[in-house]
Amino acid sequence: MGDWIIRNVNDGDEETVAAFGFALHMHYLYHGDFEQKNMFLAEKENEALAIANLTYHDTFHAAGHDDDPGFIRYLTGEISFAGEEEDEAVKDALLNALIARSREIKAQHPEKRIVLNQYIDPDNLAEQSYYLKRGFTIYESIVILKYDLSRPVPAYPLPEEVQIRPFLLNNDEARGKYHLAEQDSFNGVAWSLNHLAWMQGTPEMVNFCAFSGDQFLGNTSTWRVSDSHSVTENVFVIPQWRSRGIARNLLCTALAYLKEQGKTVATLGTYGTNKKAIRLYTQLGYELDGFRLTLGYEMD
């Protein structure tokens, strides 16, 4: 080790965390899934050099997979440096801290398959090379698609008994209803209730939800990336209501809304193996924008 130390973040580190960016600072202060024991500082003479944090991916607490030894539960690690230049020795030490903490979590869940993952752009060969040398391997690809909002937004018929409307997730009952429908739609995988509550404060976030009476059928969420760019994510319909045009109507409702707001592009991501979703999105007019790779390190 060099003349620096690695330690956990503590209660006196708010200003230190803030120096690594507004988003991380807000997560540290207000996001219930960010725990100090999962955050690490590289520090030299009381000056922060870099920070690493570990969060539970949506898959980690997925319901209904306890009897499936092959189901992967991800822990997502991130490392950020204070300056533009990275010190590889510091990066190694922080990655070691993330791996060690992941092993502690694995020891608490010995029956579960747990993988520490990183999301990396495919053109960032240096970053890929670094993690491959450290024993990571490629687990998944994420397809990024975009919709040009200068184009007309298509319209499709909707079953008479179905209504689509904005829906605020601003109370426990609403979030609970959403959470159960998301779990049902994604085979037990869903945002944590902490994350769901946190995302309601995201700029310009709107949930467009489908209902039949009081029954929650599906969702598309939008939130702001920039003045011209928003996303259309969290697209789902519960299984018993699929193949009835609800998903495409949810997306088109969201796209029409974004177009009215003056946005020029909307993007979404989906797993490269999800052929059904990719077919739906491309039929609506989404086009390929790029990829992201999921590199993972399995805990043994």
Rank of each mutant, 00 (worst) to 15 (best):
R103V: 06
M26F: 03
Q108S: 12
I51D: 02
L268Q: 13
A52F: 04
F236K: 04
L251A: 02
R151C: 00
R279A: 13
S243R: 14
A197G: 12
G77I: 05
L98V: 06
L193M: 15
A107H: 12
G64P: 08
G262H: 08
M1V: 07
I105S: 07
Y74F: 15
L255V: 05
G70F: 14
H65V: 08
E127L: 12
Q163T: 13
G213N: 07
F34H: 06
W191P: 03
L168P: 00
H31G: 03
N96D: 15
E43F: 05
R244I: 01
G290S: 11
N234V: 13
V237D: 06
V206C: 05
L94D: 03
R165S: 00
I238V: 15
T267K: 12
L258H: 01
W198L: 04
N219K: 07
Y130I: 08
S212Y: 00
E15V: 09
S150W: 01
Y30G: 10
E15T: 13
A82H: 10
N170C: 09
M26G: 07
F167A: 00
E204W: 05
Q183D: 01
T232Q: 03
G285P: 00
K276E: 12
L268D: 10
S230W: 13
F291R: 14
P152F: 05
Q240G: 04
Y178W: 15
L280V: 02
E86C: 05
I51T: 07
D289G: 13
R103L: 14
N234C: 14
R134A: 13
D3C: 00
H25P: 00
E204Y: 08
L149I: 03
A62S: 15
A19G: 03
G188A: 09
D58T: 10
A89I: 08
S80K: 15
C252E: 00
